[in-house]
Write a protein that binds this DNA or RNA. Structure first.
Length: 500
RNA sequence: GGCCUUAUCGUCUAACGGUUAGGACGGAGCCUUCUCAAGGCUCAAAUCCGGGUUCGAUUCCCGGUAAGGUCACCA
């Protein structure tokens, strides 16, 4: 195998803790890390940071995996696929952390915390009262005890100084010495803290680019001091901008309405839409292209076009984008999915005519034009927008007038006129061959001249209402072509009788 | 409160010292049309404020302001 020293293989990771579902913020960070790895033919690792056993939520790992897989973010190493570096689950790597903990103790960079939790809390309280920032290192013991593994192990910051580092997105960042403190490496339960474990793992796993949200900027000096103590070289930091709540007052979090990414699947958004949309919050291609396949995203993705400032997740634009992706789907796939969704709807499946799949398939184009995500099909059905295809609308005398324009029931004259138009149309239909009802175009050819002659609105509106019973519906030609000759004539006949 | 970060139409964003500040979503209007949907066209809409630097600042610097983040034996 040939390796080029100047081109180190790009390794990125996504490292969630298994404390519940994935929301869009987390997924977006994962997405960027994934795109960068794939763009560079690198490696993408899914690492589970389960060092807080109290917060752990049963089944989260599976849920996280399903979320990533739905979006097509497949990983090279993960919970079920360890690498040469070992497991990707932190609770299975305790040995490694312990090893490094002892190395730090040997070097004099770690010591057991002699205080109880209560004592530390008191220190903290006191600092707060004095309106001073609390720093544990102000209370650092003079002499370090031998660590028995039962007390928390703290990091002794090697050098108190201002740290300056470079972020691939934010450029040069820095923080003063007050950002540095003797943080805990190993908790009293024997598990490492995030601060410690992630650095060891990133080193071990050869992670070259750390993608993470901006909340970690302020703790970066701590990480850097730990890298220094361990003699590790720094990886590239890539800070992703926050996704904000609609009102922009807060970063979007689980408690602020951030949805489980899989809810978007349940609502019938396409995974391509989600990855496209999420990537475009906080990143831009530098061109005016907006609709991207996953592959196109991989090709186009660059670090220098990642946005610094936070953005709001706009569901209206998401809907628009989903529609655009829906349009890119092959018709057969589109229709198959539509049929699946129809089949799970309790109302529409009740109609006897629903069993006629040939008939139902005629509705696909109509439905497709009216939805932006699959669950809109249910909305359509619940609003009664499809009922009249399956059964004749209940039109009775007195019910015929909606607003002022439906079928006038107010004056005898108007009724008479409408009856005349409908009767004429009915007669045309009756003498027309079955083939003439096959398409909207051929239906149009049958009656359009007559409608134009009499005033299109005068003729077509009553016809459409006679067939649909609705103020709003597809055009009458389409309706006729879907309902067919027999049903059409029957519905017209019924209205003609009412008008008599 | 300390520290850190950010700031272009309502929203996502482009413009990396010189543009009538561009695109998209949403909105309004028009066209198509019997209505709706879809489609096409048009319009309205922004550089947080104040100082510098410069021939020239959205862009660089400083100061405000506002917003976000962070100060755990959480990640």
């Amino acid at each position: 195998m040939e390796t080029n020293n100047t081109d180190k293989k790009i390794v990125t990771r996504f490292a969630p803790s298994p404390t519940g579902f994935m929301h869009i913020g987390g997924i977006r960070t994962a997405l960027f890390a994934y795109l960068w790895a794939r763009k560079n033919n690198g490696t993408f690792i899914l690492r589970i940071e389960d060092t807080d056993k109290e917060r752990e939520v049963e089944g989260s790992i599976k849920h996280i995996e399903n979320s990533l897989l739905w979006l097509g973010l497949e990983w090279d190493f993960g919970p079920e696929t360890p690498g040469s570096f070992g497991s990707c689950i932190q609770s299975e790597r305790l040995q490694t952390y312990m090893e490094f903990a002892h190395k730090l103790i040997e070097k004099g960079f770690a010591y057991p915390d002699p205080y109880t939790k209560e004592e530390v809390d008191d220190f903290r309280k006191k600092s707060e009262e004095e309106k001073k920032a609390f720093l544990y290192r102000d209370h650092r013991p003079e002499k370090f005890e031998i660590w028995d593994g039962k007390k928390p192990l703290r990091f002794k910051v090697p050098e108190i100084k201002r740290y300056t580092w470079t972020d691939a997105v934010r450029g040069e960042l820095s923080a003063g010495p007050e950002a540095l403190d003797d943080f805990i490496l190993i908790k009293s339960d024997g598990y490492p803290t995030y601060n410690f474990a992630h650095i060891i793992d990133d080193y071990y796993m050869g992670v070259t680019h750390i993608f993470r949200a901006d909340e970690f900027i302020s703790s970066t000096p701590r990480f850097l001091s730990l890298y220094d103590a361990l003699g590790f070289t720094y990886p590239v930091f890539v800070t992703t901008p926050p996704i904000l709540r609609d009102d922009r007052t807060k970063k979007l979090g689980k408690r602020d309405g951030a949805k489980d990414i899989l809810e978007y699947r349940a609502e019938g958004y396409l995974p391509e839409t989600m990855s496209n949309f999420l990537t475009l919050i906080g990143w831009n291609p530098g061109t005016e292209k907006e609709i991207f396949s996953k592959k196109e995203l991989i090709d186009a993705f660059t670090l220098d076009h990642i946005q610094k400032s936070g953005g709001v997740f706009n569901e209206e634009k998401l809907d628009w984008m989903n529609k655009e992706h829906l349009k890119l789907l092959p018709e057969t796939e589109r229709n198959a999915t539509m049929h699946e969704w129809l089949c799970t709807n309790e109302k529409i499946t009740q109609f006897e005519k629903f069993s006629d799949t040939t008939f139902v398939s005629k509705l696909y184009p109509i439905i497709f034009d009216r939805i932006s995500k699959w669950s809109d099909i249910n909305t359509l059905i619940e609003a009664g927008e499809l009922d009249y295809f399956f059964e004749a609308p209940t039109l009775e005398k007195g019910m015929l007038s909606v607003g002022t324009k439906l079928i006038q029931d107010e004056t005898k004259n108007a009724n008479e006129e409408i009856r005349k138009y409908l009767k004429h149309i009915k007669e045309i239909f009756e003498i027309s061959p079955d083939e003439a009802f096959d398409s909207a175009e051929t239906v149009k050819a049958l009656i359009f001249d007559y409608a134009t002659e009499q005033g299109r609105g005068n003729v077509l509106w009553p016809l459409r209402v006679a067939l649909s019973g609705r103020e709003k519906s597809p055009d009458p030609f389409t309706l006729v072509s879907i309902l067919g000759k027999v049903e059409t004539i029957s519905r017209i006949k019924k209205v003609v009788e009412i008008l008599t």
